[in-house]
Design a protein around this nucleic acid. Sequence first.
DNA 1: AAGTGGTCTAGACCACGAC
DNA 2: TCGTGGTCTAGACCACTTA
Lengths: 212, 212
Amino acid sequence: MPSESELSDEFGVSRATLRTVLAKLAVNGLILRKQGDGTYINARVRDINAHLGNLWEFARIIETNGYKPTIRTLAIERKPASDMEAVSLGIEAGDELLSLTRLFYADEQPVILAKNVIPIPFFREPIEQIDGQLHIREILGRYCSQKIAFAITDIRSALISEDVSTIFEKEMNQTILELQVAFYSNQNIPLALGSNYFDDKTLRLSLVQAWS
Amino acid sequence: MPSESELSDEFGVSRATLRTVLAKLAVNGLILRKQGDGTYINARVRDINAHLGNLWEFARIIETNGYKPTIRTLAIERKPASDMEAVSLGIEAGDELLSLTRLFYADEQPVILAKNVIPIPFFREPIEQIDGQLHIREILGRYCSQKIAFAITDIRSALISEDVSTIFEKEMNQTILELQVAFYSNQNIPLALGSNYFDDKTLRLSLVQAWS
DNA sequence: AAGTGGTCTAGACCACGAC
DNA sequence: TCGTGGTCTAGACCACTTA
């Protein structure tokens, strides 16, 4: 790649500004930087699916695995919060939640079952109009005026449960990945929870870490 | 937290320098920054185990799960590269590898079985002297003069295999996490591979992602 | 020796939130 | 309105690689 000076000239910005951009590419390992040498594009990382800034963009993960992603909304409904959900969300058990169940397909094969819950009080608009194709980040933004600042994910292995095995058309005794996510605002308020069942026999879940 | 100006005064550095430090804390979600308001410490994230810059510091993960970590070296030996290893490492099948098998304990309970392989030609020192307590990064640094620039990890679920179930003292039919890692230099040269079997019933594997 | 990225400075203005 | 973080500039020097 061209040097920092050349690039900053080309784009008409200062070198400091350009460096902040390059730094963001570097933490994802998309470019490799060598002092005294130059900057190189990392082809190996370019084709990896989850860069852990977009771990929850399932459609993108499916796509980079080489499949055509489609999303089917299985259910949008109200339901009371369970004890565990209430604790995680900092609300009372029994408080109303919006529950959103969606199924992601890789080509025609169902591969990710995604269940999300959002406390009803966050909604500023009637929940009947929700577009099931949207990412949680967009749903929280559009309908709740909330912005996700960070997310904490627990990754577990599990035996496929009966309902999931039916949906995925897999035999029991198969294992899957369970991704339990909690999304928070920059006020540190829990905004939403996600329970995701990931068919890791069909899709690769790859993460990239880079060090400076 | 004090404002950027106060902190830069206190430490006697420019505000730009201070901001690069704060930015690193922010990508791990350790601090939350609000324009027009201030910077806040994120207590929720502080106690999480894997910040994905240190996903492979297993001892640290065990520690933040509330256990005392200990490492036992099961084997340090030479062995020929399998076909798959050869492809991943960009060498010929049959080329010699150093194979390092280690077992991580949480208190007295074995929880992570870590197998690593490094091509023998990388070593600049006799391999008999390797300290089994070291992190791969340190082993590659000290004995091979190689620095890890980035790593790609595949996360999978699996049924516990017979040997692992014996080591972990678990019943068969249990599931575990399989973490397949490849480490690369900033020349994009594969340096080492890791196959890690992670008892996710005992340890929580948590990841944090933060957005600006 | 020349060119690269890494670090740092001392300013400036803007967007935003709280008061 | 004031103070915050977000963005940006135009320079400087250093550490390092390559030739």
